[in-house]
């Protein structure tokens, strides 16, 4: 298998030296979301321990499963966020993401119909934003999360300007 690793990497390789990576604050943001999403499970597990009559082994098993899933998700978030990257070429934008399922999307600037800049409450608190590209196809799926707001705004403006430039005369 090791001889193939090089090929796999080539398929998702950056066009120039390196992908522009996203801010590690995105890891924090997603882990906060994970913790908030786990509150209900935690409540159920606490209840399992406290309510009399429930066999202890059930409470132990539930806790073990929860902890295992939580740790795995916690670890995966770090890897997933580090897998995000983008590169602005002269004529198109490349976005790469994913670990288990790897994705690379190439969007020619002339095809962009809209560039969205969004930031939820946690994102704003941490100081990150998401830039999302839209084309006429619903399946394009090119979002770059975890950008510092200034970078995000600058990227959006650059993309919008290039989009206009490339589709001028349409």
């Amino acid at each position: 298998m090791t001889s193939h690793v090089h090929e796999v990497d080539a398929a998702f390789a950056p066009p120039q030296e390196n992908w522009v990576r996203v801010s590690p604050k995105l890891i924090t943001a997603r882990r906060i979301t994970l913790v908030l999403g786990s509150l209900l499970e935690v409540a159920v597990i606490v209840a399992l321990w406290l309510i009399p009559g429930i066999p202890t082994w059930i409470a132990i098993a539930a806790t073990a499963v929860f902890v295992a899933v939580f740790v795995w998700a916690w670890w995966l978030i770090g890897r997933r966020v580090r897998s995000y990257g983008y590169a602005e070429r002269e004529t198109d934008l490349l976005v790469v993401s994913g670990i288990l399922i790897r994705r690379l999307v190439i969007v020619p600037y002339g095809r962009m119909q809209m560039v969205d800049l969004t930031a939820g409450p946690i994102d704003r608190w941490l100081g990150i934003a998401t830039v999302q590209l839209h084309t006429a196809a619903a399946t394009t799926d090119a979002a770059i999360p975890g950008l510092p707001p200034d970078d995000a705004a600058a990227l959006r403006d650059r993309l919008a300007a290039r989009g206009e430039e490339r589709s001028a005369g349409m």
Binding site: H4, R102, A137, A138, T140
Partner: peptide, 29 residues
């Protein structure tokens, strides 16, 4: 509109990948 390269673990082991060509929504993909 855009081009995507995707690869799942099974495809990685087989040295294969899927290349999708995005078009406007409709019956054809």
């Amino acid at each position: 509109q855009s081009v995507r390269v995707m690869q799942g673990p099974w495809q990685r082991a087989l040295r294969l990948a899927t290349v999708a060509f995005d078009v406007a929504p409709g019956p054809v993909s």
